[in-house]
Amino acid sequence: MNIFRLIGDLSHLLAIIILLRKIWKSRSCAGISGKSQLLFAIVYTSRYLDLLTVYVSMYNTLMKLVFIAASYATCYLIYLKFKATYDHNHDTFRIEFLLVPAVILALLINHDFMALEILWTFSIYLESVAILPQLFMVSKTGEAESITSHYLFALGSYRGLYILNWIYRYAMEDHYDLIAIVAGVVQTVLYCDFFYLYITKVLRGKKLQLPA
């Protein structure tokens, strides 16, 4: 564990808490893409199946359980409890365009052709693009609430911090994993446009509004 990874994980945790809290407090999931949240639930489920086979640490187990539980809770709030507030007219990204390539790529490019390993690889590929329905929704409506922007910033920062962690681990432990690194870079790049808007608008007290 190094500082980049710890802050990355905490940023990830913060993002999840921000989103759950926002939905719960406002009793509404307006502006939130249920499809992205569904993809995240698939990501955590397929990646953390190793909870059943290997024990890494208490920290590792706890965080995995929290991520899985929170992603299911978020989906429950969006698709069941606050279903009436779900903005499905604007959540029109076709997730099969992300799911199918992630499956195919995981079958073709992986470290080991074994079920758990392929599921892990699939989750890494899917995670890198899982935010696209949410970003698509923001671009479609042309705006996002500040709290949604904070959520996106925390979630985007997490993988960016992991890149620093991977550089650190390569230097210190001579360890690197190309699949995770390439997917992590893609994931972070997808947020760049949003990061720019967040820093130039939201942090200056303005609403995140895209130019018409």
């Binding site: 890494v56 991520f67 470290h111 080991d112 992991y162 962690n165 432990e173 994993d177 995770a180």
Partner: peptide, 10 residues
């Protein structure tokens, strides 16, 4: 195997 080490990450 590099992936063995990777699995300690989230």
């Amino acid at each position: 195997h590099s992936f063995r080490v990777q699995k300690d990450e989230l």
